[in-house]
Design a protein around this nucleic acid. Structure first.
Lengths: 221, 221
DNA sequence: TGTACATCAGTGAACGCGCGTTCACTGATGTAC
DNA sequence: TGTACATCAGTGAACGCGCGTTCACTGATGTAC
């Protein structure tokens, strides 16, 4: 049957890690150890394999090695599970954004490009999670923590834009430019992961295009 | 219960239209008249209401006023129904694109803007169908007629771009610029219909933004 | 240190549901004569 | 013009399926004494 997940998520404390390792050798423990994290990992995997809409609680439970009722001890319902997975993914991506910016000197257009490149990279690396995080998902736009997380990420881009232009981060012009950039990489990401670029036999030089767009949007004449 | 659909689709010939009108007065006819068109209309409505993934054959049949088995006389399976609806939508949108260009003088940037505006308009007017047509897709990217239709639409944009720049339509530069524009309006469309713009309280001047982007992408310095 | 106990993360069976698709059928239609 | 008949678009019942969620329960754990 299905093996218990051994992947340890960032939130797992030392305690549960020990329990999990014990479980791995003993093979059958009544308690999972850190089922919440195990489920998030299973959800992640299933959302990738089947897409956010086809994800099922039962299958996630099976994958995590517990009964179909177990997830309801950690999440109110299916939608809460997806929201938690989305939030988790946003946190990861935020970290990646900061990491991508860290080594670059301030006030250069490469910083803008790097954010765009990372966005597309996240999309193509995990299309399912990208969809879950940045697209549809009916109720998600009403969830305060998801909104806050989204605003923080956009704020990061907006801040970069403002710094480059030498204006205030709250200047509407910074928001406008950031929105242009976001729209572009967002659209390109979807055209890529939805297979439109491939189906229509478009061959594009991604880095070149990102560079070109960043120049056109950020540099005035 | 549900009324029979009276909306007549473009493909309905005179014959079936007469039959349908007869049915409307008689109230209960054994034959539908033009069930294929009726189903496409029902699919369209349901895809709007529930989204492409939540669309169900049974519900479409109910809405069209026939038994759940009837659709299978016209389509091989659920996926064929969605593909047919997508193709239908592409044809409509192509027509709209041509109509939008018709009154505009050649070689002006307004033509590019008009295409972008229409794209976003189609997306916000019928988000479900837009999703079905330009995203989603598992098998759709392997369907020759859908691919051909997509290529034709992109070709239209590409042609406009080439004409404006005064280069050959097949020049890779035309494809590059067209791709930038498509990515932008595609991304913006999704950010709008997925409620991200609203949720994150971004207020943007759409026409101004479209104009600005068209300028930045099309005009070199 | 050892024991009694409260806690609560898990179980497994059950529920009602709507789905996609198939089947043998029925009856309205248009056509050949 | 009238009739016999082939066609095939519809019916309605049935199937097997996996789902989300609930329920009373069980048993491993950590803690108070």
């Amino acid at each position: 049957m299905l093996e218990r997940l051994t992947l340890t998520i960032s939130t797992a404390q030392g305690k549960s890690r020990i329990m999990k390792e014990a479980a791995t050798t003993e093979k059958k423990a009544y308690h999972h150890g850190d089922l919440r994290a195990g489920l998030l990992s299973a959800i992640r995997q299933l959302v990738e394999e089947k897409g956010p809409d086809q994800f099922s609680v039962a299958e996630a439970a099976r994958l995590a090695g517990v009964s179909t009722a177990a997830p309801y001890k950690h999440f109110k319902d299916r939608d809460e599970m997806l929201k938690a997975a989305a939030l988790d993914n946003m946190a990861r991506q935020s970290t990646e954004m900061r990491d991508a910016l860290a080594p670059l000197p301030p006030k250069c257009v490469e910083r803008i490009e790097a954010l765009g490149q990372l966005y597309i990279e996240c999309a193509t690396r995990e299309p399912g999670m990208f969809r879950l995080t940045f697209a549809l998902s009916s109720g998600h736009n009403r969830d305060p923590s998801l909104i806050a997380s989204g605003k923080a990420m956009f704020g990061l881009l907006q801040h970069e834009v403002a710094t480059f232009l030498g204006i205030e981060p709250l200047d509407p012009e910074a928001e406008r430019r950031a929105m242009m950039l976001w729209s572009f990489v967002h659209g390109l990401s979807f055209l890529l992961i939805d297979g439109k670029v491939e189906a229509m036999e478009l061959d594009l030089d991604l880095p070149q295009m990102l560079h070109d767009v960043a120049q056109r949007v950020m540099v005035d004449h």
